[in-house]
Amino acid sequence: MLFVELIAQGLIQGSIYALIALGLTLVYGLLRILHVAHAAFFTLGGYIGVMVANQTGSLAAAIVAAMIIAGIGGILVFRLCYQPILHQPPFVPLIASIGLYIAAEELFRIIFGPSGLSYKYAFLQDQVVLFGFLRFKLAEIAVMLGSAVIIGVLSLLQTRTRIGVACQATVSDPQMAESFGISLQKVGDINFFVGSALAAFAGVMVSVLNNMVEPTMGSVPSYKALAIIVLGGLGSVRGTLAAALVLGVVESFGTIYLGHYLDRNAIAFAFLILVLMWRPQGLFART
């Protein structure tokens, strides 16, 4: 029983990681930059979600608003912050991104106050019992189902639509794609829009799960998502998904059985270092 429950909890955590890490992978695949500030859209999503939901009383409206606003924010970050420094060595955008993230976190604190916000209405807080013994919050189920559906739809779009194929082509070989007349700018816009919108969705779901958004809620996901995309083999969407779910489950068991020796973040990184030393190109990389 406990075993199944721990796996289920790991998968819930894993799907949250997956939603955040997917955006990072899309960006890395295209631009080869580690987009630390990505987690700011996770936090932004949470804040917009709480505010819109408290105003309108509708969680659906909150999710849509959060995803659209974060998506547009993503495009702005791409055009204003990253595009001009793409030709620089990798540490330049990396540090710029870290600076951006620190500044964003502070902006949240200054604008919305240090102690965070909560929902006025109880969304998805009911309990669901599955198979007689697995007990979930409705929100937990929604996280899992939501991410599965979104990721499924995305991969369909990626293989079935013109623009999706263009994106894929650009990620695997930007120069070749450009010579076929695909606009890098456009693909960049789309990747940043989609990635940031996914992060915002994750932000809303986590804010519902915890009934709280706070300025620092993105700091753990920001570096953990980095670890995940590295494990997934940098730039590989499927690898990232697998790595996110595996890490969720590893952490779930780790907090119980290793908690006295290592804390949760250290577990994730110990796992990461082990894997990298064994397979320097990541756990799920195509070689």
């Binding site: 721990l6 986590v206 709280m212 779930s252 907090t255």
Partner: peptide, 15 residues
């Protein structure tokens, strides 16, 4: 059980 100050998700621990 122990948890870190940044943790907000306690699913595994609670199970």
């Amino acid at each position: 059980y122990e948890y870190g100050i940044r943790d907000r998700q306690f699913g595994a621990l609670i199970s």
